[in-house]
Amino acid sequence: MLDVSKLVQGDKRTAAKIITLIENNGAGKQELLSMIYPHTGQAHVIGITGSPGAGKSSLTDVLIKKARQNSHKVGVVAVDPTSPISGGALLGDRIRMQEHALDKNVFIRSMGTRGCLGGLARATKDVVKVLDAYGCSIIIIETVGVGQSELDIMHYADTTLVVLTPGAGDHIQTIKAGIMEIADIFVINKSDLGHTKKIITDIEQMLDMSPRFQTGWRPPVLETSVVNQQGINELWSAINHHLQYTDQSGELQAAVCQRLSIEMMELVEEELRNKLWVYFNENNNASNLLHQMVERKTDPYTEAHKFLNNFLKELC
C-alpha cells in the first residue's frame, strides 16, 4: 500500500505512483481513495473545454503562469483522445507545457480517454482528489476536444470555461443546447484573428434568451489572445470572481453536494453491476436461458425482471 502521508506532505513521486495505480484500476484503489478523501476539498477546480483547435492547451499554459505568479501550487489533468485502433494516445498537451516541467509546484498529468465518452478519462475525478490531497490549490482540467454533448466537465469543475474561436463555423451553433449551457465563463480565444464581434453578439443574445441566466451568475464573454497576451488578466479576475460569487451564494456547496451524490450513485451502480455479472455467470441455467431468447421462446424483458427478483431474494 502506498503511503498517503507522503502524498499529503507533497511528495511528487508518491503522487505519480498513486495516479498510475488509479488509472490502471490497481489492487487497493478504493481503500487508498478512502484514505485520501479526508485530505481533499481545498482546491479550486477549473475546467477548460471546447472544440479541437480552440487553443485550450495554450490557454491552460498561460493560466498556469498566472496561478504561479499568485503563489498557487498547480495541478493539471490534460486529457487526450485514445486511438480506437491502437489504443494509444499522443498526450501532446504535455508538450505545450514543457516550460513548467522543472517547477516543483506544478504537477502535470496527461491521460488518454481510454474509450470513455464525455470528454474526460474515467479516472479524472479520482486523479483530481489525489492532486487536491497533494496540496494543489488550483487544479486545471483540460478536456479532449469536444462537441455539443460532452458535458462531464460540469460534474468535475467548480468553474467551467468554454473556449471558442472567431470564424470557426456557423454562429447558430452558439444557441444550441448542450455545451453552451455549462459555461461559467465564455472565452473567445485567438481574438488576434479578428471577427469576434459577431460571435460575442450571438452568445450575449443566447444568454438573454436563456431562463437559466436571468438570475444569479451570468457568464461573462471575454476575448483572449495567447499570442498577444491580451485578456489574460481579465480572465484570471473573472475566474476568481466566479469562485467568490458561488462560495458566498451557496451555489458552490450545492454543486459539491450534487457532484458527490452523482459520484456515490456511480460507485453503487458499478459495484452492483459487478455483483450482477458474477451472479449471472454463476447461474447454471444462464446458457440455456440465452438459447431460449435466441429462439424467441422468451424475451429479455421478462427474464431481466425475473433475474433481478431472484437476485434480490438471495440478498435478503
Rank of each mutant, 00 (worst) to 15 (best):
V79Y: 12
E142T: 07
A254D: 06
F213D: 11
F107T: 05
L164A: 11
E271M: 09
N284D: 06
L243D: 06
A304K: 01
V256M: 07
S137Q: 07
R68S: 06
E31L: 03
K65L: 10
A43D: 08
V187Q: 02
I262P: 00
G92E: 02
E150L: 06
C116Y: 12
A101C: 02
V79P: 03
T20L: 02
P219V: 08
G50Y: 03
T302P: 13
S149H: 04
S110W: 04
N309F: 04
I153P: 03
K17N: 13
Q30C: 06
L276W: 10
L91I: 13
M209I: 09
G55A: 15
R109T: 10
N240C: 11
V62T: 15
K29Y: 07
E223I: 07
T298Q: 15
T201C: 09
L222F: 04
L193Y: 03
K297V: 05
L117Y: 11
Q30D: 15
Q148D: 04
V106T: 08
A43L: 05
L161R: 10
V45E: 14
P81G: 06
K197G: 01
K65W: 01
K197V: 10
G75K: 03
N285C: 08
Q292A: 11
T143K: 04
S34G: 14
A43I: 06
R94M: 04
L207F: 15
T246S: 15
G47P: 07
A16C: 07
V45Y: 10
V127L: 01
I185N: 01
E99L: 11
I64E: 09
W217E: 06
L308P: 02
T160G: 06
H242P: 06
F307K: 01
A304Q: 10
